[in-house]
Design a protein around this nucleic acid. Structure first.
Lengths: 172, 172
DNA sequence: AGAAATTATTATCATTTGCAAATAACTTGC
DNA sequence: GCAAGTTATTTGCAAATGATAATAATTTCT
């Protein structure tokens, strides 16, 4: 009746464990360059999209707003990013990579590739593609559950489990 | 020449992001039950294998030794686990689940299943199986790179990059 | 057996984190 | 146009974390 073995196959377990392990190893690797894993997560998003506001970036990176706010100050001090109160809405912080930040991002790429290769050892091309696709899918599923696309009058009919997020914040 | 888009497809990025997000959501969910995500990671390992020493558990869970030591004291206070100086090697701490710990583990299962389902929304049975298999594989690859199976005289021929782990500890 | 080396665990300290409250800027209704 | 309400970011505070140093127990070498 005891189902010890099955537990080990739970997605939350497998996913979190692999993700954490990857984070630890990658983090140690880039630390000597003067950046941390959260910094890299920020940099990659800015690199990808060019500009973010704080709130958007917090959601995108799954880093808590207050944590991210302080992280960004540190990154600005390091010369990696630009933080400026942007034109239209003076509440909003406009965040962009500096040229140094861009250069640093590029310098990190080989390290990312190294861990990419490490993690994918003995996998076929197809398996790798599928893994990446499914990881993207999982994140999207979770993110959508956490930040549902805004409807007008929240139909409020579906969920048997009433989604225990009292705070909508994306903490990390 | 700029390869912005490719970056978003890096395994370390995708994996860590999905893993962290899963961790955050699952964590919030089980918090009202009085346990944290690291506690659950400990519990699942003990449940699976029955008994661990601290050092082994630290490696297995990728939680830093000092952090884990404190966590285990807290878990003992909560009545979830047993910590006893065990027979053969009096240095070692023998860690096991108490009946209450086991009961708690079982109580967490439905929550794990919930997030499993959430993450796997719109995936086929086959995709799910493959994802789990590949996640296990990735973890094994990383873990093996970090804790290589002990050879006698470390052949020292293969790695172009000399594995930057100065400390072997599995911190989290 | 006894000293040195090895391994396992805990304590200390500075940093990071997340939540809650505070602040600042904007928007809407009157 | 101004008061009241909203949204965006920052700050204060307590808890968790990781690295290092300290402590404890065992094994090894002679």
């Amino acid at each position: 009746m005891s189902r010890k073995l099955v537990l080990q196959e739970f997605l939350p377990y497998l996913l979190n464990r692999a993700g954490v392990q990857m984070g630890i190893m990658f983090s140690r690797d880039v630390e000597p360059m003067g950046i941390t894993l959260p910094m890299w997560r920020v940099m990659i998003e800015l690199w990808h999209r060019g500009e973010f506001r704080l709130g958007e970036l917090a959601e995108r990176t799954a880093i808590d707003l207050s944590t991210l706010s302080r992280l960004l100050v540190a990154m600005q001090k390091k010369g990696l990013i630009t933080r400026r109160r942007s034109g239209l809405d003076k509440r909003a912080l406009s965040l962009t990579l500096t040229p140094e930040g861009l250069a640093m991002s590029e310098r990190v790429v080989p390290h990312a590739l190294h861990y990419e290769a490490l993690g994918m050892k003995d996998m076929s091309e197809d398996e790798v593609k599928m893994l990446k696709r499914l990881l993207q899918k999982v994140f999207d599923n979770l993110d959508q559950a956490e930040h549902p696309p805004k409807e007008k009058g929240t139909p409020e009919g579906a969920p048997a489990k009433p989604a225990k997020n009292r705070k909508i914040r994306a903490s990390a």
